[in-house]
Computed example of a mutant assay.
Amino acid sequence: MLGQLGQGDGYMHLPAEVNPQQLTDLLSDRYGAPRTLVLDGFTDPTADESSGAALLVPFEGRAVTIRAWAYGNQWVGTGTARDAEGVVRPVLAVTRRTLPEPLATAPGEEPDWLRRLLQITGWTQPAQRPGVDWAEVESRLGLDLPSDYKRMVETFGEGAFDGYLGLNQEPWSHWREEGLLAWAGTEHEDTYCWRIDGDDPDRWPVLVRSFDGEDLVFACGTAEFVCRILVDRHHPYTMARYFDTHWFLSYRDA
Rank of each mutant, 00 (worst) to 15 (best):
E178D: 15
T222F: 13
G221V: 08
C220V: 08
E189Q: 11
A160Y: 02
P205A: 02
L165V: 09
F243K: 09
P201A: 04
G157A: 01
S173C: 03
R241G: 15
F218E: 06
R228H: 08
E158Q: 10
R233N: 03
Y192C: 07
R209C: 06
L167H: 09
F218V: 07
A223P: 05
H246E: 03
I229M: 14
Y192W: 14
G185Y: 13
F225Q: 01
F243A: 13
W194V: 00
S210N: 13
A223T: 12
A219W: 11
E214L: 13
G159I: 08
D244V: 08
Y237K: 11
W204C: 04
P171Y: 00
S173K: 09
Y251A: 15
D244P: 08
R203S: 15
T245A: 13
H235K: 08
E177G: 01
H188T: 13
R241I: 04
H234P: 00
A182H: 09
W194F: 08
F156C: 01
H235Q: 11
T238N: 00
Y237E: 12
D232I: 02
R176C: 05
L230M: 11
E214A: 13
L165A: 01
G157C: 05
V231P: 01
V206E: 11
L180C: 01
Y164D: 12
D197R: 10
S210H: 10
L230P: 00
H246P: 00
R228W: 03
T186D: 15
T191K: 09
E170H: 10
A240S: 09
F211M: 15
V231Q: 06
G221A: 05
I196R: 01
L165H: 03
T186H: 11
T191R: 13
E214I: 12
W247V: 06
R176L: 15
W194R: 02
M239H: 09
H174M: 04
D215H: 06
H174P: 02
D215T: 11
G198Q: 10
S210L: 12
D232F: 02
V226W: 09
D162Y: 03
D190I: 00
T238W: 00
P205V: 02
T245S: 10
D244H: 05
Y251N: 14
F161K: 01
D199P: 04
V208D: 08
L180F: 06
C193P: 01
E170N: 06
E214Q: 13
